[in-house]
């Protein structure tokens, strides 16, 4: 993988400067049923095509942004800085749980 992503603050950079945090999902606004919760937490559309994703410029400005990427070609069609949306909360994917003892 070597495609470029355009960070809204820093401009185009090698994908390895970023952390990928999965598809943009939607956090329920109200208390969800177990099924809705499971859907939100576990299910991803995993499309072959254009999808909305979360990216974090880990080695650069440490800013979260959204990207529209074609999963078939890795073409990044657009990027946009994250902005607050208190109601329809777009939620991040599960954070990685450390696999080494964390003392």
């Amino acid at each position: 993988m070597s495609f470029l992503l355009s960070c809204p603050n820093c401009g185009p950079r090698d994908v390895n400067e970023f952390a990928y945090a999965g598809e943009v999902t939607s956090r329920p606004a109200e208390r969800p049923s177990v099924r809705e919760l499971a859907t939100y937490v576990h299910f991803r559309r995993n499309v072959a095509g254009v999808q909305q994703e979360w990216w974090f410029h880990r080695f650069g400005c440490e800013t979260w942004f959204r990207a529209e990427r074609d999963t078939r070609t890795n073409a990044v069609l657009a990027t946009e800085a994250a902005h607050a949306e208190p109601d329809g909360q777009a939620a991040p994917a599960e954070a990685a749980v450390p696999d080494v003892p964390a003392v």
Binding site: A19, A21, W54, F56, R58, E62, T63, W64, A82, H83, A84, E85, P86, Q89, A90, A91, P92, A95, A96, P98, V100, A102, V103
Partner: peptide, 21 residues
């Protein structure tokens, strides 16, 4: 945070705050 968790937690904080504002 834990020793191995600092960057993950920071990104996690920043992420939620990007959404919550």
């Amino acid at each position: 945070t834990t020793s191995t968790g600092a960057e993950t937690v920071l990104a996690w904080f920043e992420w939620w705050n990007a959404v919550w504002g």
